Amino acid sequence: MVDLIFVAENPLSWHTANIERNPKHYSFLRYMGSKAATTVQNFGAAKIYFNTLVPVNNAVIKYGVVSRESFIEDLLDWNSLYVSGRLHKPVLVLQNYDDGDIKMALEQNLYSALHASLLLLPESFTEERLCHTLASLSYRGDFRMKFGEDRSKVSNIVKCQMEHFRSLYEPVIKRLDQWVDVDFLSGKAEQDVSPSAKLYHLNLLPKTLQMGMLEEWSCDGKCHDLEDILRAAAYDTECGDLVNAEIEKIVNQSSWSQSIKGVLTAGIFKSIKYSAMKVSKMMKSLNKT
């Protein structure tokens, strides 16, 4: 199934026109009108509305609608890692348009993904492992990865798209050559894992991730400064585990809210069919393993 994302300047107007043009794409919510669809879209962290199992030209697609504002916010801050996580992987842009804010947010999202991934990786690693880490960020903490998703999903994404990952991240890696060195000919990579390097990456993580770390360190009831927390984390031998835990929290929250929303946007029958397809794919993967 092909996944599509539409960024809409005005989701209410978008749903109004789409319900009129393609009413069968929607669940029972179409009878409640575009305001109801927009309200459901804004529910939860991801703020995206999906129509799934839609037949188009002898293919089956799933398409999501997100507002421009929510799209940019997730790219910059990782509020949900739902849309931003998809864009850590290579995608095909169907329509380019001159929007400086979106271009900047898309680029910043790649930098954030690289900073986070380097904090999760050891001093020496391979290019393939780097790509696997980048691709896996948005699946960490997703309850569906335990049951309902293909266990080889991330590996499958990476193996068939190594060249696309390289073209996407090579410019970003070269701009961070002070901290990481990737030999694209041999596929071997090394990075600076000193506290100063870790602090550099921590300072450039998205806001939601940083605030999660601050909240975790403030569980003792004391008031902590973000700068002090990040410095302490940089010297902590378990720095990568701390970052991973916060990523998992973000993804877990958005995966649950989006799954609940999916029952409304897809309807009961489509939800059951879609879930059955996922489970079937997971079982086939387990049998191969």
Rank of each mutant, 00 (worst) to 15 (best):
N109R: 04
L110W: 00
Y111D: 06
S112M: 00
E123T: 13
F125C: 11
T126V: 05
E127D: 04
L134Y: 01
G141W: 03
D142Y: 03
R144K: 14
G148P: 08
S152N: 08
V154S: 00
V154L: 01
S155V: 07
N156F: 01
Q161S: 13
E163N: 11
F165A: 05
S167G: 03
S167T: 14
S167N: 11
S167W: 03
V172L: 04
L176M: 15
L176Y: 06
V182A: 03
D183F: 03
F184A: 07
F184T: 11
L185V: 15
S186F: 02
G187M: 09
K188I: 09
Q191L: 03
Q191T: 05
Q191V: 01
D192L: 08
L199A: 02
Y200W: 13
H201A: 09
L202Y: 02
L204Y: 09
L204R: 15
L205I: 11
L205R: 08
L205T: 05
P206V: 10
K207T: 10
T208M: 10
T208R: 13
G212Q: 01
E215D: 13
W217T: 08
K222N: 14
K222C: 11
H224L: 10
L226R: 12
D228M: 13
A232G: 08
A234G: 05
D236I: 10
D236E: 08
D236R: 12
E238A: 15
E238V: 11
C239S: 12
D241T: 11
L242K: 14
A245I: 00
E246I: 09
K249D: 00
V251M: 09
N252M: 11
Q253I: 12
